[in-house]
């Protein structure tokens, strides 16, 4: 009887070539001794008995080393999804890769241009190429930050404080620069002292809302980066 020792996660086993069930033709690895820390299923996986994998391939290659490496691999099922770059009106097509994190939540780990798209044929501009960071950058500023006039350091504010500050400034600037009647005597009711710029990641709804609010205040200098 030929025996072999197998070492793997959780212990060492001794396996032996034996003829099971009295069969004279089929050779199989039979278990003589098994460490108690490992379930039978694990053992079968390790030795490859359960799933029909063999120590040698069909053509006779030794698979022991490759099997050992396979056991160490940390592989996860990534999902590819098609998406569209939110940054501008070109509307480049993207492939987004997500993989479950340790809690099983999908985690976005890669975005690239979709080579099959007739719009961009795999290409992204430098801005679109950084779209991953829009979703999950660890450099994202998560609190309102304030730097007082003349100050060199930033200071963290609460949302309430920041909103109060903004409302105050908008009100003051609007009061100071409001033009009810222009030089020719036309009734215009406009604010010349504030301008508004919408960012590229604005959704359509946010853009619509912002335009309404700003026009309501009398702003005429409204700009919005063109987008899809």
């Amino acid at each position: 009887m030929k025996t072999a020792t197998l070492t793997g996660r959780g212990g060492t086993w001794v396996a032996a070539k034996a003829r099971p069930n009295g069969s004279a033709t089929s050779l199989a690895y039979g278990v003589i001794e098994m460490a108690s820390t490992v379930s039978r299923q694990d053992f079968l996986k390790l030795t490859g008995i359960g799933i029909g994998a063999l120590a040698f391939s069909e053509l006779g290659f030794d698979l022991a080393k490759a099997t050992a490496i396979k056991r160490e691999l940390r592989i996860a099922n990534a999902t590819e999804s098609r998406s569209i770059c939110p940054y501008c009106a070109v509307g480049c097509s993207m492939i987004a890769y997500t993989r479950p994190d340790t809690n099983g939540q999908p985690q976005l780990l890669q975005i690239e241009g979709d080579p099959d798209s007739p719009v961009n044929e795999g290409r992204l501009c430098p801005k679109g190429a950084t779209a991953l960071q829009l979703a999950s950058s660890n450099r994202r500023v998560e609190h309102p930050m304030y730097r007082a006039p003349g100050a060199t350091a930033w200071q963290q504010l609460t949302w309430d404080d920041m909103l109060d500050k903004l409302a105050r400034r908008i009100k003051d600037s609007r009061d100071r620069t409001f033009v009810a009647v222009d030089k020719k005597g036309n009734l215009v009711n406009r604010v010349d002292g504030i301008a508004f710029t919408g960012g590229a990641t604005f959704s359509s709804e946010e853009g619509y809302f912002a335009a309404k609010v700003m026009r309501g205040l009398g702003l005429v200098y409204l700009e919005q980066q063109a987008r899809v």
Partner: peptide
């Protein structure tokens, strides 16, 4: 798509992605 941990953009570039 079964890919190894460490093979996607965020992992290769090291630490851009939060958490």
């Amino acid at each position: 798509v079964f890919s190894e941990a460490g093979s996607l953009e965020a992992e290769l570039s090291g630490g851009i992605v939060k958490h």
